[in-house]
Structure formats: C-alpha cells, structure tokens
C-alpha cells in the first residue's frame, strides 16, 4: 500500500499550517515503509487536536476519552496481543489528565509506540497553558504568564522506568520517520516526544530548535555508539560534572577520544540528557532497554498456570450429592 492509501476520505480538520499535518504525513509514509496491515493496525487516541488523527487513517482506530488512551490501548493489547497498536496523544492528554495512565503503561511496558505531540499548549480548548508550557508563558488562562513549572515528558518517562525514550519534531520529516520506525520496532512501550508547532495558540514555541538558522546552536542528535558533537564546527561535546551536563570544547580540536559517546543503554547518562530542558536539547533515541512486555507476561503466566474448564470450576472445592 502507498502512503496515501492509508488516508481515509475524511476532511482533515486541523488549522492550516498546524504541525499535526506533518506527523500525519510521516506516519502514513512509515506505514508504507513498514508495510502496515490495516486489518491489524490500531490507532488509539485520547482527546485534543492530535487525538483526532485516527479518524484520518484507514486502519482500526479508537478516539477515546481525554487521557485514557493508554488504558484503552492496554485493554486492546490484553485482548489481542498481536495487534499493532499505536498510541496518539498530546501534552495535555498524556501528561495532565492522563498522567497516571501514561506512567502505568510505561511501567508495565505494554508493547505500543506512543506518539506524544507536544505543543506546550491546549489547542482544541482554545489556548490554555499546558503542563509542558514554560514558566511565564502567556495564554488565555495565564494572561500574566504561567507560574507553573513545566513537566519534562522524557524525565517523567525515565522515572516510570520506560524502556524506550526518544524525541523528534514535526519540522524534521526524515528524522521523525526514522524515530517512528525505531519506536515501532522496539519491543515494549516506546515514548516518542514530538515537538509540534501549534501555529494558532503557541506559534514558534520550538522555533529555536526547528529554524535552520538556530538549530545548530540549540540542538544535537544522539545516536547509539556515536560521539555527541555540538555546534557548527562540531567541536564541542558534553560531560557530566557533579551530575550536571556541561558543554566542553574538544581539545585538541577533533580529538574524539574525549567526546561523550552516546550509549542508549546507560540510564544515568540518558537521564542526564533527558534533563536538558534549556536552550540546548537532544534529539534521537535517548534511552532504550529490553525488558518483559506486559501482555506477553500475562499470557505466559496464564499458560503456565493452566486454565480450567467451567465444569471443573463449578465442581471445585466441597461438593455433595442430595
């Protein structure tokens, strides 16, 4: 199937220019690339702009309740462990009203990729500050600037013992596709944070990470086994000083032996990278590990214990004849 064949005939109702269009497009291309089977693919979403996505994709889909997509997805996977379930959610959906469900999904390691559209604002309800909004952000519900600390989805996921944590953005289509494919290939819950521009209520929130003129000073890409190199000249790297990440210059220049080599399996370093929420941020797979998958464990345990027939259950324990 071609990418466009994965689209339904429904009119897409996002605002013109919204970053959601890019995510939708990349997802259909990923579906083409991996040969997704529409009969066995399920998109589960909550409520919000991003959560409308399942209506536009020609697979099974369920547009559920605000925040509850992880729980619905868990139910689908328990009932149908072989279904390819994807979770589609936003910052308000996954981190505010659905925060509890998200951490338990990650903790259990249900085998689903999670596309978390982070636009740092509530779009569908017309522009209130969200749990990922930066302190000081002006919005309809915070006209003088938000006083709340912003929640960092990546460190939250680390805290919930997630087995795959990655970041990408709407404006980097190739990278986004690569991350989606990696998230799908991962065995377990795969949290992919996607910086998504809401051009109506929070335009430019990620400008410094996405505008070609600035990206080089504000972003770096991490790849397993590769050195982390920063800056136009790729002459800087990171180091951990008392638990904090610091940018240092390679000296002598070009001596990669000093560079921070990214190890997706190192939880301490991954956490340090995930914590980078300032002007310089990592993109790519930050952390990944293999651990048992919830629905498989459930079915393995059931098979091990053995299941009893109705006849046996009814006659178990003390019975007597009259």
């Amino acid at each position: 199937m071609k990418a466009k064949d994965y689209l339904t005939d429904q009119d897409v109702r996002w605002c013109p220019g919204c970053g959601d269009y890019s995510v939708l497009k990349q997802l259909t291309e990923v579906f083409e690339a991996i040969g997704a089977d529409p009969d066995n693919t399920v998109l589960i979403s909550g409520i919000g702009c991003s959560s409308r996505l399942p209506y536009y994709i020609n697979t099974y889909g369920l547009h559920g309740l605000h925040g509850r997509a992880p729980a619905i997805a868990t139910g689908v996977k328990l009932a149908s462990p072989d279904a390819d379930v994807w979770l589609v959610t936003g910052d308000g959906d996954a981190l505010s009203i659905g925060g509890n469900h998200l951490i338990h999904l990650l903790r259990r390691n249900v085998n689903v990729p999670i596309l978390l559209f982070n636009n740092e604002v509530y779009g569908l309800t017309k522009g209130q500050y969200s749990p990922t909004s930066q302190p000081g952000q002006h919005s309809r519900s915070s006209p003088l600037g938000s006083i709340d600390q912003a929640l960092n989805p990546l460190t939250l996921a680390m805290g919930a013992n997630a087995s795959f944590i990655a970041r990408s953005m709407d404006r980097s289509p190739a990278h986004l596709r690569e991350m989606m494919i990696a998230a799908k290939a991962h065995h377990g819950s795969a949290l992919l944070e996607i910086y998504q521009n809401c051009n109506v209520f929070n335009d430019g929130a990620f400008e410094r990470f996405s505008n070609k003129q600035h990206t080089i000073d504000h972003t770096f890409h991490v790849e397993h086994g590769k050195p982390i190199l920063i800056g136009k000249d790729q002459d800087k790297t990171l180091q951990l000083v008392q638990g904090q990440v610091e940018v240092i210059k390679l000296s002598p220049a070009g001596d990669l032996s000093q560079a921070w080599t990214h190890d997706i399996h190192d939880p301490i370093k991954a956490y340090a990278l995930a914590r980078m929420a300032g002007d310089l941020r990592p993109f790519g797979i930050i952390y990944q590990c293999e651990r048992p998958v919830h629905e498989q464990e459930v079915h393995r345990a059931m098979a091990e214990q053995g299941q009893q027939s109705l006849e046996v259950i009814l006659h178990a324990g003390r019975i007597w004849e009259v």
Binding site: L62, A71, G75, A79
Partner: peptide, 11 residues
C-alpha cells in the same frame, strides 16, 4: 476503559 479496549478487540 481497558475493558472497553478489550471489547473493541472482540473480547
């Protein structure tokens, strides 16, 4: 909601 998900999956 997990029960609803299960019903969507046919159980």
């Amino acid at each position: 909601t997990a029960a609803i998900g299960a019903s969507f999956a046919g159980k």
